[in-house]
């Protein structure tokens, strides 16, 4: 079933699901939606499975012509979505008709918006996932961002939603300019001096323009190593905070390479990494130390919140 005709692709619009797991040992990154929370919520608002594919839209959104009568939901960053040039509501189910034009305007806050369509976006699964991994050239639409002229397909869903769903206002996240990010020290915290660790936790770091789905390069006070910044390469997962010789931290994001040879001072917690998807170059980050036990309760809380949204709070507008 044809969903959209791409009139304008936007700056970087890609198909993502929850990620590609099980192939890290072959060097395949996890990929997946940068902002898990918004991706899952968008799906829930059109009664999809959380792993169904959505469009991840970065800063400058696309212009899409609807080829079907269906339901959509837009969550995450407010990139001024419009339907036929009229402001479109976010965080709720929206019905669209054949011929409607979905477009985006000036980014208001956040960095990445998610567009879910009833039934999910239909692209072939590659290694068990529909996520686009652009550096590897696979997943999503031929491993690349949208292009003008593309057709986006969905799955045939005959029954439309009987109710429109809406996220309660109090559960809609706010995206700050200053992010406070919880981290768990390690695995190479020992490679840093006491002063270095202190610098890491007491300084404010700025996200530079050299930031994308692979990693965010930060600027700020240099973190001191005991000896050297290089290690015999070991594994990397999204969230790892690498500190190369320059002493300036790099937060690895969803398309992070699977191994690396820089010391990792700490790892960002899962819920906070999801929120960091909305941080833009120029925004700042302050790292806060958390324990494994605290991080675990935050994670349980994160899942409970999504579950609550699913079972209880999605209500008729």
């Amino acid at each position: 079933m044809k969903l959209f005709h791409v009139l304008k692709p936007g700056a970087f619009t890609i198909v993502q699901d929850l990620g590609r797991y099980g192939y890290l040992r072959y060097g395949v990154p996890v990929s997946g939606a940068m902002d898990t929370f918004s991706h899952v919520t968008a799906n829930l608002l059109v009664a999809n499975h959380p792993n169904d594919a959505t469009l991840e839209i970065t800063l400058l959104g696309p212009e899409l012509e609807s080829l079907a009568e269906t339901e959509i939901a837009i969550t995450g960053a407010n990139l001024s979505p419009k339907i036929n040039k009229t402001n479109a509501p976010m965080w709720r189910t929206v019905r669209i008709k054949k011929g409607d034009i979905l477009s985006f305007g000036t980014p208001q806050n956040g960095c990445r918006a998610y567009l879910a369509v009833r039934g999910g976006i239909n692209v072939p699964e590659v290694l068990g996932s529909r996520s686009t991994y652009t550096r590897g050239g696979f997943g999503g639409i031929n491993g690349r961002p949208l292009r003008a002229g593309d057709t986006i397909y969905g799955f045939n869903k005959t029954e439309s939603l009987s109710v429109k769903l809406e996220m309660p206002r109090e559960l809609v996240p706010e995206y700050p300019k200053e992010y406070v990010v919880r981290v768990i020290l390690g695995p190479q915290a020992e490679s840093f001096t006491k002063e270095g660790i202190e610098t890491f936790f007491s300084s404010v770091y700025t996200i530079t323009t050299e930031s994308d789905r692979m990693g965010y390069r930060l600027d700020g006070p240099s973190i001191e190593h005991v000896d050297k910044a290089d290690i015999v390469s070991d594994a990397i997962l999204p969230g790892a905070v690498q500190v190369p010789e320059s002493g300036k931290p790099i937060i690895m994001m969803r398309d992070a390479q699977t191994t690396g040879g820089y010391t990792k001072i700490a790892v960002v917690t899962t819920p906070d990494l999801s929120l960091l998807a909305q941080a833009k170059p120029g925004n700042t980050i302050k790292f806060v130390k958390t324990s494994l036990a605290e991080a675990r309760s935050h994670l349980i809380e994160f899942h409970r919140k999504l579950n609550t949204i699913k079972t209880k709070f999605l209500k008729k507008p």
Partner: peptide, 17 residues
């Protein structure tokens, strides 16, 4: 053994090739 964030851990056997 080292924690690697809230969902992974590292078992370090050595630090050389």
């Amino acid at each position: 053994y080292f924690p690697f964030g809230d969902s992974a851990l590292v078992v370090e056997i050595g630090d050389v090739i």
